[in-house]
Design a protein around this nucleic acid. Sequence first.
DNA 1: TCTGGGGTCCTCACCCTC
DNA 2: TCTGGAGGGTGAGGACCC
Length: 500
Amino acid sequence: MRAAPTILHLDMDAFYASVEQASKPSLRGKAVIVGGLGPRGVVATASYEARRFGVHSAMPMAQARRLCPNGACLIPRFSLYRAVSDVVMALLRELSPLVEPLSLDEAFVDLEAGGTAFDAESALETGQRLRADILAATGLNASVGLAGSKMLAKVASEEAKPDGLLLIEPGTERALLAPMSVRTLPGVGPATGEHLRRAGITTVGELAEAGEDELVRMVGRSHGVGLYRMALGLDDRPVVAERDAKSVSVEDTFDVDLHDRVRIRNEVQRLADRCVHRLRDSGHSGRTIVLKVRRYDFSTLTRSETLRGPTDDPAVVREAAARLLEAVDTTGGVRLLGVGVTGLADYTQEDLFAQSMAAEAAAEAAAEAASAGEGGAVEPAGAAEAAGTGGAGGSGGPAGPGGPAEAPERAEPSDEPEPARERRWAAGSDVRHAVYGPGWVQGSGVGRVTVRFERPGSPPGRVRTFRVDDPELEPSDPLPLVGEPAAGEPAAGEPVPEEG
DNA sequence: TCTGGGGTCCTCACCCTC
DNA sequence: TCTGGAGGGTGAGGACCC
């Protein structure tokens, strides 16, 4: 264990919700819930005001609305969160080359490696300065934990929330941890927590008293040894700046369970294409294709197939995913489908010909089986193109920046000729009006969309309602929270011009 | 009117090879 | 030639994290 508390853990407070409040002045001090707005959406983040009503992450959005009926429910705008995160991470990298991002809003920093802190005093000073710099650069609050290890630094930042800083002095770890719940420790979730509770262990102190052998017996070797060490405050994991991705996957939860086998095949093909797109963007190829199916009763199964060599060929991934699907019983309905690739490599082994031959042979075998009696033929390549327009249900998930241009809703299939698509305006998405300028969608329905015209730094703006097909209203990109506006934009802080 | 999406890591079972 | 154990690869599922 380190002598000096120079590992810093940064945690942005209620990040997505705070960004929304900073971006939308009328929401400051109000309950804000960010998450999927579909019938199966869940809460990604709730502001502290919403948390007072019992709303928390991973809660079904419908339940959150019941608990907090006056809260503003918004879709996540990941492009904006990523931009803010980049600013914060850049500030961290000024402190040390050893920065380990955990997500958009969390990171570890090894201050000693950066020469910015070597003892408690300098670490505290650095932490306070960092919080001030983040506030100045983004307008957002961050909590900072400082300790001699990653685990303790994370515990410290958790204790410091919201908008605080806590340093755990070396030598005080065990006394500090002892009364805390076992759930405080990373790696102890609901299942392990319940397992330990049944054994009469609810606090970290009791965990330490149980002893390593007992914990190994209860939760297995790897987890048991790790838990015991953490209970003693021991953690020698280094801060790692670069981490290689191990898998890439995409998945969609459907608003309505899918029953039609052809539709399910089409969705799998579409997901395979999306997955390969992501795979290529990351500069990888992969060897093992994984199909994930969550059934109507929420039971989840995975099927995987390992190829002879890594690939980033969409046809190969599509074919493998289709073969895996053939082995899955989907009667009763499917609520989620996913396609993933693991066993990542930085290159593509030139063995695709052999893989395609194998895939072809398998497809032929499947076709033969189908013609022998039941309709199980593999969907022809290209079916994925049809999936986009003929798709039904739509993803209920919060993923993806909102806005009608970026995330068109998929509609239920119909025999009717497709009408002109009505523009859909997701709550929280950015828009621009030719006359009134930038704003955001407060709500929409029955052919109308309500927009609040305000921007970061402005006073709360006014609300106006338009027809959903108003030609003067367009989706737009988010404005920066702090700093110079784009050319032609009023500066942040300037009031939004209002007419009468 | 429950329960997202994108990950990581671990365990266990099974098969195959040596 | 048969048998058994060790160990690696693969496949499946569970737990956890943000």
